[in-house]
Amino acid sequence: MKFNYIRFSKVLALFFILFSCVENEPERPLGEYDSGILIMNEGSFGANDGEVYHLNPTTGTLKSDIFEAANGRPFAGLLEDLIYENDNMYLVANTGKVEVVNPGDFTSLGAVTSGLDQPRSLTVNSGKLFISDYGPYDQNYGTPDSYIAVVRNTLGGNVAKKISVSRKPEDMISFGKYILVAGSEESKVEVIDAEKEEVIKTIEVGGNPSVFYEAAGKIWLYSTGLSEVYFYSFHLDNFTLATTNIYPIANATGKIAFGNDDIMYLLTSSGWPDYNDGIAQVSVLGPELNPNWYSGSGFYGIGFDKNRGELYLANSNGFQGNGTITVLDENGSELRNLDSGRGPSGFMMR
């Protein structure tokens, strides 16, 4: 009997050792905001009233100011980007901070509150945060000192290093230990080695690089020009351009939504003096091209719910108060309208 106890305890110990060696983090229970649609409200300049709304598209329930509701304090910034990576939600304020929250309930997990100037976007790589930042304005409102800030903790903290890049970096995408940076003002894509924390290559492209995305097993870049838009794909082994597609779509703003069947929806705005806004439809992998798919005014953000085949179009209403959201079907027919916060500028479909 004694022998059996010893054997049993050895087996039990082996069992615990085996399972303790497996790197299996405990599952985070899903929260209310792990599904549905998050509406980014940029906020009004000088008021720092950016916030996130949550829409449950099944019930139609809209929750306002979910950051403030979860944390008992306002977001207090202009919300530039919302990124879900590394099982965290990152809220990037171009007023100079990044808030890290639990994506399920938006409770605060950490923040980067100093060392930033005008952050635009973020990616997580090699256990670090890489934050694109315009840098400070010079006397002529130029941004000659743009950078990628490195924070060596995915939950925030201090900026450990600033990697100089071309003027006005925007979106970023991670691939292995590499990061591609959309250098919007100088028509460049910079490649950063996240481990070395340095730029290892620069790729020249056309237009103003805006958004990276993945499709058909490749990384793509969407870039806007005055009278045309560009879509580039890259060879990721040597970081050179693989394909270039150019479409005659004028006045694209850089905001894009990805629909079903590889169709993309691009926001356009003629600006001064005609003020015509619109949505163009294009597909790099398919035949679609319709520069005038939808038109109107005051468009400020766009998103697509692939599950329901619905396009979400945000209207800033002139920043006089809160914005509104118009939901369209895939034929451009208006389905319904929703309220939003101030300056609705984008959507995240969870």
Binding site: G271, W272, P273, Y275, G318, Q320
Partner: peptide, 9 residues
């Protein structure tokens, strides 16, 4: 009188 954005202006 109120100022409204018309495109970027």
């Amino acid at each position: 009188i109120i100022w409204l954005p018309q495109g970027s202006i």
